[in-house]
Amino acid sequence: MQSNVGLIIEEKAADIGNFLVGRLLPFREKRAVGPFVFIDHMGPTCLKEYQNLDVLPHPHIGLSTLTYLLSGSIFHRDSMGNAIEIKPGEVNWMTAGKGVVHSERTPEYLRESSMFLHGFQIWIGLPKELEQSEPTFFHIGKSEIPEWEENGVEYKLIAGEIIGKKSPVPVHSPLYFLEIKTKNAQKINIGEHLFGEVGMYVMDGTVKIDGQEFGTKQLLIAKNATLCEFETTGETSVYIFGGEPFSEERFMFWNFVNSDKEMLEKAKKNWYEQNHDAFPLVPEDDQEYVPLPRSVFDIKKDNEATKSKLL
């Protein structure tokens, strides 16, 4: 029997300053799964009392960010004026639209304490007609996220709509982000409920598909979502995500996503020049920021400066 697994991606380390995360998307062979264009698995790691998460103010366009924690705490501030702590089981959903700036830090009351940090940072592309929309922000409490158990299998629908359930996260296109946990070996068949493209991330334990075993920190991309059937071999945690892909290609540079490359160039210029009309300051966190990575844009600027001096 031919396996329904079309691609196997190993989690790879990525540096976001003083913190290492496991990057799942994008990958060379697969730039997106449905509308999901970027997934970082944070931790699990222990931040000592002298270590803190400090992701400085940085910009986004053309996407929604989804932050979901399993342990730890992050304090979110953004250029819309939102300032809120996100705790385990809660969801921060921020839609950048035409442009937003935000920071993510260890809360002040925890900055001299040890803390385990574990969770997901996810980017989801926007439909073309919303790429230039006004930015918005929503915080969804743990008790609002649908949870249920069926035949010994625990489900949690973090975002989207599936299996007759709907998360309150205000998504902008058909998608799903589902947590599945088992304590004992179980056979799970949810293919009839899935649509579009689908990926499965094995966080803990082992799953068996068509007689082949896949282990921890592997991302599996299905060839056919409707054939999604797997077995867990014991205590296992997996995350199913996906949905309808966009008809237009999405391009990415740094923190910017858009269907129009010209909008990426415009965003680069605005952030490079610190245009606060395009990217407003973050209230109470406006003294520092993440600079634009060196790129063709920067090299061109350097060349122009050198040429000017020579003249």
Rank of each mutant, 00 (worst) to 15 (best):
H193E: 11
E249L: 11
E108Q: 08
R250I: 13
S103F: 01
V55A: 13
F251G: 07
L25H: 00
A159N: 04
W254Q: 07
G196P: 11
E179G: 04
D285E: 10
N303C: 14
P174W: 08
P280E: 09
Y289F: 15
R111I: 02
V257I: 13
R31C: 08
H139M: 12
E10T: 10
W93F: 10
Q2M: 09
F75M: 11
F75W: 11
N52A: 09
D54W: 05
P57I: 02
G34L: 07
H76F: 07
N275E: 06
G164N: 06
H172Y: 11
E131T: 02
F241P: 04
T67Y: 01
M263Q: 14
V238F: 03
P280M: 06
S295H: 09
Q132A: 10
T232D: 10
L130Y: 10
V290F: 10
S173N: 13
P88G: 02
F138Q: 13
P291H: 08
G243K: 06
K187S: 14
G72M: 04
V202S: 08
V238P: 00
K187D: 12
W271L: 04
S173H: 13
K128P: 05
H60Q: 00
M1D: 12
V37P: 05
C46K: 14
Y109E: 14
Q186A: 15
E304D: 15
E29S: 12
S259T: 11
S143L: 09
H139F: 14
M263G: 06
R111K: 13
T236F: 06
P127L: 05
G81L: 05
E29V: 00
G243P: 04
H76V: 03
E150G: 10
I145C: 06
I84H: 15
F251N: 07
G72R: 01
P283A: 05
T206A: 10
F256Q: 00
A305G: 03
V91M: 08
K12L: 08
V282K: 01
E248D: 15
Y109T: 08
G34I: 06
K223S: 12
I190H: 10
L25W: 01
P59M: 01
H193A: 12
V100I: 13
T236I: 02
Y109C: 09
H193I: 05
E288A: 15
S79H: 03
T226L: 15
V290W: 09
P291L: 07
A96C: 07
V282R: 04
P88H: 04
R28F: 15
F19N: 00
E129F: 07
F27C: 08
K300V: 09
E131V: 01
L117F: 01
T206D: 12
L178M: 06
G81Q: 00
D78P: 00
L24C: 01
G43A: 07
P59R: 00
W254R: 06
F27L: 05
M1I: 13
K142S: 14
F195Q: 08
L20H: 12
M203N: 07
G22M: 03
G43N: 01
I240W: 04
Y155D: 09
F195G: 10
D285I: 02
G81D: 05
T206P: 01
K156T: 14
L53W: 00
D260F: 00
K87P: 08
